[in-house]
Write a protein that binds this DNA or RNA. Structure first.
Lengths: 285, 285
DNA sequence: TATTATTACGTTAGGCGTAAAGATT
DNA sequence: AATCTTTACGCCTAACGTAATAATA
């Protein structure tokens, strides 16, 4: 039977051309690699080398064998990798969400219910999320209402409502509620990594410009130092700091008041259930 | 690094379900296979088994690993086989011919020139011969004139001329030469394994019936015991027995007087040359 | 009680490196 | 002289089988 270690020596020798260089690269002695080549020839049962007194080279058969050995080693490596990855995926719950806020609830719930599992999360656009769910790249997906994911089970998870935050002196501060057409044209401070909210702002407020802040600290400094309006939501207020000096005005468009659904394949019902159970301790829809 | 021996034990265990049955099939002791499974788990670095006190089974990951291992073992076996076959092909000269007579010259010439090589020959139809040459399944091909094999080199090899053999009392015996139309309608004794001659007879003499004899002895007994005409050629007469009681009448159609060409790829020029050289001792075109 | 997996243990075969030899440039 | 392959030799790991243990059906 073939031995992958021996084949690796063959491949390295085929690449480098001399046994001594191969031995050096493989950190083994020259006699070892000599013996290995002899043993390989025995295993194949056919001549693989052209031998001089002081020189050894592959013949046609040997070159063919080395080329095939290289492929075999590669597929063997792939097997190691894929088996390890499969194992890792078995002990990982991947959640893909269209917005950050649901993750603040879902991730703690999952790690409480499955302390031994790795919880992985990512923010993506809605089409990518559907793809991930289809391909099994995630077990749980968080989508806004109105997205049909018929091939999967889904359950309502929680709601999020959008607010505009302005200083009391701001022109908008007089309204008790707002629509996107009211605020279209005003420039806004905006966080990065806010999922589908980003797209929504740009679609609903084409006349506005958005100053996107990657850094949380810098966002707040700008918010304090300027009178620029920014967005918040009920969920963000609950989990993040907010500026007491600002007034919150609800945005009434249906698009700004989202119900999130959790979607999953039947085999992952248990994950979804544990989220519902733990979440119910904290809040209810 | 993976070890194919260990993987084979894994595959057998996956098939049989218990270590002891696997050990029995593999002719090794139970402790050995236990250790191997432990070592495999180390190598993969992930759990492959579900262990009870006196029960062990593959988990999902283990099943995946076993399935992939099975494939790997198969490709490893294929490598062994193909390398051995390649070596064998390197020490074999395969000749494919459209008729038997040229082989009587070519095969002895080749084995004289290359005593250490295996000489393999086969009779085939002309399209198959071209295919074999294209696919490298033969190094030398013997084709009749008029076949264009432009992609290959070729050289005239020898000629063969067809004769009809009849008893002196036979109606055809009065002719000093014949054409296919003269003999069309007469029934003939015919040998099997005569290559393209078989097709030619049936095409040129559609009104005739042919009594094909597989056995050489039976052919001659029938020839002696009957007055049925049969074919011979100058080459056959030179190498095979002939009946002195019969008269030989040449067939004058061009199709019945063939020049054979030897076709080959440039890298096998040497084979063709050695045939020409050795053949020239015996005869010349 | 028979079957199964695992651990313990002693033996041995085989694989490795060092050293040396033979050969080439 | 330097480089390269191969052989010789001694060590030592690691792999195997036997025997024993533990647990189960």
């Amino acid at each position: 039977m073939l031995d992958l270690n021996e084949l690796e020596q063959l491949v390295v020798f085929a690449r480098l051309g001399t046994l001594s260089m191969a031995a050096q690269e493989l950190h083994i002695s020259q006699p070892t690699i000599t013996r290995t080549m002899q043993h390989l020839e025995e295993t194949f049962g056919v001549p693989l080398f052209i031998r001089g007194k002081n020189r050894i080279a592959l013949n046609d058969t040997g070159r063919k064998a080395a080329a095939q050995a290289e492929q075999l080693l590669e597929t063997a490596d792939n097997i190691l990798r894929t088996v390890r990855e499969y194992d890792q995926s078995r002990r990982t719950i991947s959640v893909t969400s269209c917005a950050p806020a649901p993750l603040w609830y879902v991730l703690p719930a999952l790690s409480a219910a499955y302390p031994q599992m790795t919880i992985a999360s990512s923010l993506k656009g809605i089409p990518s999320i559907i793809e991930d769910l289809n391909a099994g790249r995630c077990q749980l997906a968080i989508l806004p209402d109105g997205v049909q994911a018929n091939r999967f089970r889904s359950a309502p998870l929680l709601e999020e409502h959008l607010y505009v935050c302005v200083p009391a002196s701001h022109a908008l501060a007089q309204h008790s509620s707002l629509t996107f057409s009211d605020i279209n044209g005003f420039n806004f401070l905006l966080r990065s990594e806010i999922g589908f909210w980003d797209d929504m702002c740009r679609v609903q407020m084409p006349a506005s410009r958005f100053f996107v802040q990657t850094d949380e600290y810098e966002f707040w400094e700008l918010a304090k130092a300027s009178s620029l309006p920014y967005f918040t939501t009920d969920l963000a207020d609950r989990y993040l700091v907010s500026l007491s000096s600002r007034i919150k005005i609800p945005v009434t468009n249906p698009e700004a008041n989202v119900t999130y659904y959790i979607a999953y394949r039947p085999e992952h019902q248990a994950y979804a259930d544990s989220i519902q159970q733990i979440s119910q301790r904290d809040f209810s829809l």
